[in-house]
Write a protein that binds this DNA or RNA. Structure first.
Lengths: 207, 207
DNA sequence: TTATGTGAACGCATTCACAGCC
DNA sequence: GGCTGTGAATGCGTTCACATAA
């Protein structure tokens, strides 16, 4: 498939949310213009974004809310459940484990891990925290799709190597550090401190 | 000032981290090439990024680690403390309140707010949770720079309006929703569910 | 000689504008 | 007539390549 820009994928996620809102509101048809207005973009942008994946609309009419919602789900890979684990059950990790926004989209947290013996065995949201060293064996028995990394910066690269060694190829990191992974692994990093710094920059540099 | 691309600002944050590492390692000079290698970019990119703000290097030599670190801090607005509040002390909000990564960069959490009467009065990390309705008055007495929004999607726009009404012009949102703010307000949103969706897309669409 | 700083070239994402279809 | 789908034009960020300075 043609390479899709990151910005396009982000917008697709937004479109899906809006479509679900429209669906809930009982609308059956939506135009690129309406979708654009809701998301703060342009109708041409919406049509271009969708055109990378096919022709889903009817000229003169717009898009079927129902059909487009299905299509978006399928395109984003959300027409299935994803088995995810969370490594690191400090404040952030524990919060993510219970985050409803994940479950709603089919991301099912199936296990929690931590390297701290003091945390292993603890119960969080119905799951027992396991030792990070058990990861490889666990994953062999019952593979997972995505590992969410929520450990301190110092431990992050080591944990990521362990996760990859266990055979997991999807990684979502919340560690405030630049991670290195082989090409066959897909990594997505959210650095919350960096996001605040972007805000700091924006606030400092406006006339 | 000339408009700076978002991608540039993100890289500046990275450079600063690397510079601090180099500083800690005792290095006094660094080249654009070394900085690039550490961050997975190119030396031309590093030089171009820096060139938007001035000429900080010496030809044939490179950059003074110390001086460039200072410059980066100032450019990013990190040569000062930022007073921030967190609105919404559910799992995510409480986790952020105690996040060390913020404090380290001069982001000082000075107050916590929640609309749930059951949470108001609770102690978290040495701070007493206050009622969101107190926000306007509190901010009049002792203004803050940034409000971090960590409330559910349904409440987010209302809370943001309240925050803006109180006179706060910097907002960092973790609510999984598209927020609307007037032009004079600077908003930065991190949508964790969307980030997982990007990963889902990437994992689903590779040959 | 070495590494910066920067115009120019390039490539990619966004916007335009209109042909095509309902 | 209305709205989509898409080549063409534009704008913007990245890369190139070299003049410049230590």
């Amino acid at each position: 498939m043609k390479r899709i820009a990151d910005s396009t994928v982000r917008r697709l996620s937004l479109y899906l949310r809006f479509l679900e809102e429209f669906e809930e509101a009982g609308l059956t048809t939506v135009s690129s213009e309406e979708l654009a207005a809701r998301g703060g973009t342009t109708s041409a942008q919406v049509r271009k974004d969708l055109s990378f994946f096919g022709s889903f609309g009817k000229r003169g009419l717009g898009y079927s809310v129902n059909e487009l919602t299905q299509r978006m789900r399928r395109i984003l890979g959300l027409d299935r459940d994803w088995r995810i684990i969370i490594v690191g059950v400090g404040k952030i990790g524990a919060a993510l484990a219970q985050y409803e926004g994940f479950r709603q989209r089919g991301f099912r947290v199936v296990a929690l891990y931590d390297s701290d013996p003091g945390k292993v065995g603890r119960q969080i949201d119905g799951l027992t925290v396991r030792a990070t060293d058990d990861l490889a064996e666990d994953n062999r028995e019952r593979p997972v799709d995505i590992a969410v990394i929520a450990v301190p910066a110092e431990a992050a690269q080591r944990v990521v190597d362990q996760v990859i060694g266990a055979g997991i190829i999807g990684i979502m990191s919340f560690a405030p550090i630049q991670l290195h992974v082989p090409a066959e692994v897909t990594l997505n990093t959210v650095n919350m401190a960096m996001e605040l710094e972007r805000l700091s920059f924006a606030l400092s540099n406006r006339e």
